[in-house]
Amino acid sequence: MKIFEIIGRFYITFFVEAGKYINLSKNTLLKSFTVLKRRDLFFNQAFEVGVKSIILIISVAFFTGTVTAYQTGEQMVDLVPLTYLGVSVYKMMVMELGPVLTGVIMAGRYGASIAAEIGTMKVTEQIDALKSMAIEPIEFLAVPRFVAAIIMLPIAVIFANFIGVMGGFLISHIFFDLNFNEFFNEVQNYFDIMDVTIGLVKTAVFGGIISTVGIYVGFEARGGAEGVGKATVKAFVLSSVLILIADLVIALIML
């Protein structure tokens, strides 16, 4: 009997948590327009998620672009003309690697920090204090973070993609002797605005996931410093898993 009890309790907890997360995400989305009332809070968060993270994002993108170009180039030698290396790197960066890696990195950098900040506010009664001053925590805390993430993450990914592709070109030039025209000619020929759109839509969705998971986990934090620590880890793990699931779903829908 014990095993059924454990399984039953697991599913009940899972569905209760999922329901609460979906409810919070829905409320945040529906109240997004209230960001116009609190533009300062939005700009603070936009600075946090965009400007303060950009060095990290483009560093990762640069190395991702270089490794992608090198490994793909190594496999293409003697099989496919190396002039197709540029378009391979470009497509991988724009449609997959740029959005997903940026998403996962920002789940650690921004999502975990949201969970820690809101979790600390929860355990020190600051969220109750907001409510007691007739200030709606979803509007005050969740909406600016959510809107900043879905706007700034795609902008950061545009930079990341550019740097990643340029990194790929650099490696291709050094190791495979491709010049600028050889690398970028096929990029021009195979350019499809849909590829860019898919990448940016993915990133905006990932931004939504990172922020809402961080917010939800923060709001649910309990039990002092230990609870906040657990919330931070939970936010990163949960966001990363949801990003990979969303990546698959969006690819299946849009491709």
């Binding site: 009664e125 600051q126 007691s132 709606e136």
Partner: peptide, 24 residues
């Protein structure tokens, strides 16, 4: 409803045990 509960909270203020000042 939500609107009325918020107008009640404007009338009923609270001082929390730790102060609950916003540390940011």
């Amino acid at each position: 409803n939500n609107k009325d509960i918020y107008s009640l909270r404007k009338k009923v203020a609270m001082l929390f045990q730790s102060g609950a000042l916003f540390d940011s």
